[in-house]
Design a binder for these strands. Structure first.
Length: 299
DNA sequence: TTGCAGGGGTCAA
DNA sequence: TTGACCCCTGCA
């Protein structure tokens, strides 16, 4: 099953942006705070301003299934944001299937508006290398500094933002001051990753077209990329929904809600594969958000 | 004020 | 299987 659906979204152009109507299963807070992305900041009006694919936009979701996106137009929506927000997928159906399990039903209730973004694989790779044994606020900060150092400046509302640097932006860089981005021991991994992608030794587009198992193996050739980071890249930027990234939170929540015992990382991903199959990635996101909201497993 | 644990893992021994 | 690893925050 592919869970795709006929799109019934109505697009209306307004001054500085667009309004989308008939958008189901979309909650900005759930989407931007479920751990999949690091470049979206909450504003005072509960909207989120973020940077992706070299653009800055502001997104606000409303209870009546309307979404307002500022600093964009219909053309960019069709070209970039429709796919980025995975608007062609029927999350209602996914939730219905997963809700056959009572525990999942409860978790989904907390994050009912989660959607898995289709992010840029290159940016996702570097971002999740930085995420290893790190805190969210620190990860976001490092990515921001890294972007300021090497990425293109974008002005929006009188404020300067920086696009995540493309591999081209980095081609002649020395990286003598890479440590300024405060990524600590991960800096050496970042440099190695840049070299491997830049030289073509690793081809992310090719990996995206591989089967999940092969793709994970290939990603793990990059230093700083282990199982968890590889699975995040696969899920958040390569549409491999049969993945179940296991970090400390997923270990806690899976043990507490399903396995009812201590277990190893391998056991947890085996369990997920068995139980959720090709919806593992979606289940993972609902559970992750639920676990963090309720601090499950953390005494 | 200082000191120490620990955080959305990975690597090397 | 285990400890080190940058950097920073929270808390004693």
């Amino acid at each position: 099953m592919d869970y795709l659906k006929q799109n019934s979204i109505v697009i209306e152009e307004i001054k500085d942006g667009i309004i989308l109507k008939n958008v189901w299963d979309f909650n900005a807070k759930h989407i931007f705070e479920c751990g999949q992305c690091f470049r979206w900041d909450k504003e005072d009006d509960d909207s989120y301003t973020g940077i992706a694919f070299g653009k800055v936009i502001n997104v606000k979701s409303f209870k009546n299934n309307e979404i307002k996106i500022l600093n964009t137009n219909i053309e960019d929506f069709k070209r970039i944001w429709f796919e980025y927000f995975d608007l062609g997928r029927d999350y209602s159906r996914i939730k219905k299937v997963l809700s056959a399990d009572d525990t999942m039903k409860l978790a989904i209730k907390h994050g009912e508006g989660i959607r898995i973004l289709k992010q840029d694989p290159w940016e996702t790779l570097i971002s999740f290398i930085i995420s290893a044994n790190n805190r969210i606020s620190m990860i976001a900060r490092s990515i921001n500094i890294f972007s300021q150092m090497y990425g293109q400046a974008i002005i929006y509302n009188g404020k300067v933002y920086h696009a995540f640097p493309t591999i081209k932006d980095l081609s002649d860089t020395e990286f003598s001051n890479i440590r300024d981005c405060k990524a600590g021991f991960r800096c050496k991994y970042i440099i190695e990753a840049i070299k491997m992608i830049g030289s073509g030794e690793i081809d992310l587009e090719k990996i995206k077209n591989m089967e999940t198992i092969e793709a994970e193996k290939e990603l793990k050739r990059i230093p700083g990329v282990g199982s968890k980071v590889a699975n995040c890249i696969l899920l958040f930027s390569m549409q491999k929904y049969d993945t179940y990234p296991v970090d400390i939170w997923m270990k806690r929540v899976t043990e507490e809600l399903f396995l009812k015992r201590e277990s190893k990382a391998g056991e947890i991903s085996d369990f997920a594969k068995e139980k959720f199959n090709d919806l593992s990635g979606f289940a993972q996101e609902y559970l992750f958000y639920y676990a963090r909201e309720l601090k499950i497993g953390k005494e």
